[in-house]
Design a protein around this nucleic acid. Sequence first.
DNA 1: GCCTTATTCAACTACTTGGTTGTATAGTGA
DNA 2: TCACTATACAACCAAGTAGTTGAATAAGGC
Lengths: 122, 122
Amino acid sequence: MTATTLDLDAAFGALSDPTRRAIVSRLARGPATVGELAEPFDLTLQAVSKHLAVLTRAGLVERHRDAQRRPARLSGPALGELTGWLLDFRAHVAEGYERLDALLADDPRPPSPPTPRARRKP
Amino acid sequence: MTATTLDLDAAFGALSDPTRRAIVSRLARGPATVGELAEPFDLTLQAVSKHLAVLTRAGLVERHRDAQRRPARLSGPALGELTGWLLDFRAHVAEGYERLDALLADDPRPPSPPTPRARRKP
DNA sequence: GCCTTATTCAACTACTTGGTTGTATAGTGA
DNA sequence: TCACTATACAACCAAGTAGTTGAATAAGGC
């Protein structure tokens, strides 16, 4: 409740980096230290530490102290909020599509031109 | 199934910008032209066009031509995939928490020392 | 053909960011 | 205390990006 007031900018931004997604992936299987997290990557510990800082600032990861170590673990609530935001969106999109269908039914245009992504002039 | 092979980097990156999220928000209520999308923002049309390009590259938005206009609309599948990815994650997180509980039950350590973030020397 | 509208491309600037190296802090164990 | 481990901080750099202005392209209407 009240929640973390998740910063969507920071959260989405944090997940836009493949290294950070991999870190999140690993943390999803349980807490880990910076050293453990850094192992699979060809990165300095400092770099991983920075990535963790980004994830922490975004509210996606929590840290605590365990002797010299500062293990990180995922913050469930933030991920939940993020997911909620997207789910909410999908619903709106579905709604939008219905409306679009109505529009198209009124319009003498083919249902959906085959324009998946390619935007090159011939 | 095979799906659009959604580029998570691009998709999350695209959503990490508040302007682009606002654009997506607006598009969720139906297609719109660049001009229409630009109206609520204090931005040039070029800037909005660029944002749309980012969203399109990320597979979140589709464009087509309608006379001089090039209306944009959300691409449902991509949003769905993104949501799926996060949902999948949440499941893993829940799993991870269970495992963590087991760990803590095995460990003579207080559940969570009050170390939120402050790391300053006195 | 010419003018208007809608949008994009190109070049440029200011700022952010992912990475580095080097140094400093915190905690453990001898 | 000293040595060692784990992590963070600071300064820096190369690359990316959000924004700008100005010019170009595309389609319609006259």
